[in-house]
């Protein structure tokens, strides 16, 4: 506190302020010629940093580094003021609470009125329905790619992979499927789904059962589908059951058939609800 005043040179602030002016001129130049982002940012930074440094140096080194003492307000020293405040507040409260019945009615009225406004929440969104997690497939729907072209039996060789939707509903997020053509020697259909995979074509929901991302990666040597968000791994040879990562449910399967024209069609909707499931009452 008693250190002698330091004599610091002023030139650092002078140079910094000159840099600020240079930065300002440079920024306008960069803006006028539509220069690259780095020029704009560089000159802006030069201007700001120059001004900031000049002021900070001034405050720290040129203003004499005066350290001073002050007092913390110590609340328990103001007991008198606290009591006076309490008395004032009590006087105010008594005017209201003197009328006991009216006070209770007031509290009840405010509560009931406040709660009544909660109904506005219903305007924000529809009542959730089980259909929020259902695919939009019906028996006979043709499988198409995202640009609307039907998927034929020639579209995929064994080991191939593509994304398919129901015809006319390529915007249906819940209906997207990963269409695979699995090798007959390795793939055995699940019990009860023997007829769902004609000529090795298998379709699983592409919405991850963990957090809803698109299960977008397919590894044909390991025969797994992978979700890039949280690395859930699904065994496509075994009903797309999860074998790694945080997902707990298998990807639902879509029953497939091939129509006389050679196009792939669905035989109905998915084997179960699509995407993440939760505990609720509709």
């Amino acid at each position: 506190m008693t250190e002698p005043p330091r004599h610091r040179p002023t030139w650092p602030s002078v140079i910094a302020l000159l840099a600020t002016i240079a930065g300002a001129v440079g920024f306008v130049w960069a803006y006028a010629v539509d220069a690259h982002n780095a020029w704009l940012g560089g000159f802006l930074a030069l201007g700001l940093l120059g001004l900031g440094f000049a002021l900070a140096y001034w405050g720290r080194d040129l203003a004499g580094h005066e350290e001073a003492a002050g007092r913390y307000p110590i609340p328990y020293e103001d007991v008198e003021a606290q009591v006076a405040l309490a008395a004032e507040a009590q006087r105010g409260a008594e005017v209201v609470t003197r009328r006991g019945f009216l006070t209770k009615l007031l509290i009840g009225g405010v509560a009931v009125f406040g709660l009544s406004q909660v109904v506005l929440i219903a305007s924000l969104g529809p009542r959730p329905k089980p259909s929020f997690s259902e695919g939009d497939w019906a028996a006979g729907d043709r499988l198409v790619t995202f640009d609307g072209r039907p998927v034929t039996r020639d579209a995929l060789a064994t080991g191939g992979f593509l994304v398919a939707f129901p015809e006319g509903r390529t915007d249906s997020a819940n209906s997207q499927v990963a269409l695979l053509r699995l090798p007959a020697d390795r793939f055995a259909p699940q019990p009860g789904r023997e007829s769902w995979s004609p000529e090795g074509f298998v379709a699983y929901s592409r919405v991850c059962t963990h957090a809803g991302c698109a299960v977008a990666q397919y590894q044909d040597e390991a025969q797994v589908l992978l979700c890039p968000c949280h690395q859930s791994i699904f065994d496509v040879l075994n009903g797309a059951r999860p074998i790694g990562g945080p997902a707990a449910r298998a990807l639902p399967q879509l029953p497939l058939a091939i129509d006389p024209a050679g196009d792939l069609i669905a035989m109905g909707n998915f084997s179960g609800p699509v995407g993440p499931q939760s505990w609720t009452v509709y």
Partner: peptide, 11 residues
């Protein structure tokens, strides 16, 4: 100092 520091953060 603190106004200078605001500008340094911005810079």
């Amino acid at each position: 100092r603190t106004v200078g520091f605001l500008l340094i953060v911005a810079g």
